[in-house]
Amino acid sequence: MKLTEPVPGGPCWVELSTSDVPAAQAFYAGLFGWRSETDPRPEAGGYTTARVGEDAVAAFSPLYRPDQQPAWTVSFATEDADATADAVREAGGTVLTGPMDIFDQGRFAAAADPSGAVFSLWQARAFPGAGRFNEPGSLGWTELRTPDPRGALAFYPAVFGWTVSATGPFTHWGVDGADFGGMKEQDDDERTEAPPHWLPYFTVSDTEATAARALTAGGEPLAPPTHIPGGPWVATLRDPRGARFGVHTP
Score class of each variant (00 low, 15 high):
139 L>V: 09
135 E>S: 12
59 A>R: 02
69 Q>S: 12
165 S>V: 00
76 F>I: 01
14 V>H: 11
91 A>C: 10
185 E>Q: 15
144 L>T: 08
149 P>V: 04
18 T>L: 05
95 V>Y: 10
130 A>G: 06
159 V>L: 12
174 G>L: 07
120 S>V: 01
161 G>P: 09
122 W>I: 04
38 T>F: 04
35 R>H: 13
156 Y>P: 06
116 G>V: 03
86 D>K: 13
53 G>P: 04
223 A>Y: 12
97 T>L: 14
238 R>L: 00
245 F>M: 03
68 Q>P: 06
167 T>H: 13
59 A>D: 03
83 A>E: 14
117 A>T: 00
186 Q>D: 14
167 T>V: 14
86 D>V: 09
117 A>Y: 08
250 P>F: 07
190 E>Y: 10
14 V>T: 15
229 P>H: 10
187 D>V: 04
63 L>F: 11
47 Y>K: 04
174 G>V: 01
7 V>P: 02
45 G>I: 12
183 M>G: 09
88 V>D: 13
70 P>T: 09
76 F>Y: 15
126 A>W: 00
121 L>I: 05
172 H>P: 01
31 L>F: 13
199 L>F: 01
208 E>A: 15
146 T>A: 05
52 V>I: 15
168 G>I: 05
224 P>N: 05
124 A>L: 02
209 A>I: 04
80 D>Y: 08
130 A>P: 01
99 P>M: 06
164 V>G: 02
161 G>Y: 13
